Computed example of a mutant assay.
Amino acid sequence: MRVELDVQDFFYESSSTNSNLGDTDDRVTPETWENWFYRWLEILQPHLPPASSYEIGFRLTDDADIQALNAQYRHQNKPTDVLAFAALEVDFPHPEISADPLYLGDIVVSVNTAQRQAQQQEHSLPTELAWLAAHGLLHLLGWDHPDEESLMEMLKQQVILLETIGIDVHIEY
């Protein structure tokens, strides 16, 4: 299995003057993101349509950009932490395996919101970014949380994904 991850790091590219955000110590490299997504997709293989490789767009941005996307696509004119734009239907047919990567969709994360949430949760920015990226990936694969029970299942799966990459998070179930 191959994973092609298109990391668009707009936040860090445009935040060099921001002293609290965008520090190099808090930055997750594109290579690390690729490794994390590869490992996550290995675990989630039973939830994936068969393909020789998978493609995901991943964008780190700021509150203003994600607010514009949230207003445009969800009609909520406010920033949010993560948006996921799935390319496949939930009950997708299993296409013939192609040599081309199967495009799963795009994940957009606001680093501003992630920073605030990391401080509230008392963990690092990379931990929060990984948490949000894993959440977005699950949405791309059809997971949702319309009720408390499905939210708890999704959160448990996120914990498993983060533990796989060496990040220990604690949530109240």
Rank of each mutant, 00 (worst) to 15 (best):
80 T>H: 01
115 Q>V: 05
130 A>R: 10
12 Y>R: 15
19 S>R: 14
123 H>D: 09
156 K>M: 11
149 E>L: 12
109 V>D: 07
101 P>F: 05
18 N>S: 08
68 A>V: 10
84 A>G: 15
97 I>P: 08
109 V>H: 04
32 T>K: 10
134 A>Q: 00
138 L>T: 06
14 S>R: 12
126 P>N: 06
170 H>E: 14
152 M>N: 13
95 P>V: 08
137 L>G: 07
153 E>R: 15
27 R>A: 12
121 Q>N: 14
71 A>S: 12
26 D>T: 06
121 Q>E: 15
3 V>L: 10
131 W>Y: 15
146 P>Y: 11
149 E>R: 11
117 Q>E: 15
43 I>R: 10
87 A>I: 02
115 Q>Y: 15
13 E>H: 08
166 G>M: 08
151 L>A: 13
118 A>K: 05
150 S>R: 14
91 D>G: 11
111 V>F: 00
93 P>R: 10
20 N>C: 02
141 L>K: 00
133 A>C: 11
167 I>D: 03
127 T>Q: 09
164 T>V: 10
115 Q>N: 14
167 I>A: 02
92 F>G: 08
74 R>H: 11
32 T>C: 05
4 E>C: 07
59 R>K: 08
42 E>C: 05
74 R>W: 09
145 H>W: 08
54 Y>E: 12
166 G>T: 11
65 D>E: 12
55 E>K: 15
113 T>V: 15
142 G>T: 01
62 D>S: 12
135 H>L: 04
137 L>Q: 01
88 L>A: 01
116 R>S: 06
129 L>C: 08
22 G>H: 01
8 Q>M: 02
139 H>P: 03
40 W>N: 02
130 A>Q: 06
73 Y>F: 13
48 L>E: 12
80 T>A: 00
40 W>R: 01
21 L>W: 02
88 L>E: 08
93 P>D: 13
79 P>K: 02
169 V>A: 00
154 M>Y: 03
54 Y>D: 11
24 T>M: 13
111 V>L: 04
165 I>Y: 03
36 W>M: 13
171 I>D: 01
62 D>K: 05
62 D>R: 04
21 L>E: 02
132 L>N: 05
75 H>R: 07
105 G>W: 00
38 Y>C: 05
48 L>S: 11
20 N>V: 08
98 S>G: 07
161 L>R: 03
161 L>V: 10
154 M>H: 10
106 D>E: 12
94 H>K: 15
52 S>N: 14
12 Y>S: 11
167 I>Q: 13
110 S>K: 04
50 P>Y: 06
51 A>F: 09
69 L>G: 03
129 L>W: 06
